[in-house]
Design a protein around this nucleic acid. Structure first.
Lengths: 155, 155
DNA sequence: GATGAAAATAAAACGTT
DNA sequence: AACGTTTTATTTTCATC
């Protein structure tokens, strides 16, 4: 699936503003609306665009706490790795779970409404999970940068 | 700014599908379109909704590498912390920068088109930055979960 | 919060290069 | 194979109640 310059412009614009109207988008990339919409649909079907999401202010909506948890397992057999992934997939406060190389097996991003509820998630759902060797957590003091997606290639 | 049950439903639906039409949204929350749109605009103005973004598949679009970098600084004076934040804000491959408590001062999420370009970012932009004491990096093997936003409260 | 109307947009059909 | 024009359906948005 070849992606040309116009496709990249479309992706970049929709990444910045996911609710931009198709006529706006078409104008910005120098097309009329129908071919522009066809390109957007094609990018969606090809999986280049996975979806569109409202970006919510977690702190204002009852989740002021963000914590990163570095998890090491006792066994790194594939079966045990995916068992852990399935385990955290069911915890709604765990928003991200990335498998890493090196000493740390997983890094998790966890949100919580307060420290008490974070501690509860940690001690009842995470630390006692099967195969967990160690969990080191760090509270987020502040987030200086958070841009979803990918860098915009210079045109 | 009070958020009621309908507002939470709206947030949850727009978080899941940021391009849902307002008539769809209104129907799902049991309103007609005009009051629903007024609520959405109010949530946007209040900052509960920060924006809307297309969710792109970085790997398919030229950024198959995601790395987490744990950075420690020599000085944690506010001036030095914000100097580092400003420094990484200008590096397009650095997508996230969170200040943490504990031994690690910052965790960064970095994307790259290949390992060579990642090494270049690391050795020319990150490690030699002013005040940096240590940078430990881990490659992401796979991402098991990545849900933007906040948990949906049960209704 | 609902209704109804006007403007804008999206989507389909069709023709062109 | 991809863009443009035209047409139709839907959606957004505003005035009014």
């Amino acid at each position: 699936m070849p992606i040309d310059r116009i496709d990249r412009q479309i992706l970049s614009l929709l990444q910045a503003d996911g609710r931009m109207t198709n006529v706006d988008l078409a104008e910005r990339v120098g097309l009329t609306a129908p071919p522009c919409l066809r390109r957007v649909r094609a990018l969606e079907e090809a999986g280049a665009i996975r979806g569109y999401h409202a970006d919510l202010d977690a702190a204002r909506l009852g989740y002021p706490i963000t914590v990163f948890a570095m998890v090491s397992l006792r066994s790194q057999a594939e079966h045990d790795l995916s068992a852990f992934e399935n385990h955290v997939a069911a915890i709604p406060e765990v928003r991200e779970c990335h498998m890493l190389n090196g000493e740390i097996d997983f890094i998790l991003k966890i949100v919580a409404s307060d420290l008490k509820s974070f501690q509860e998630i940690l001690t009842t759902h995470l630390t006692p999970a099967p195969n967990v060797a160690s969990v080191k957590t760090s509270l987020t003091i502040r987030t200086a940068k958070s841009i979803s997606g990918i860098p915009v290639p210079p045109e």
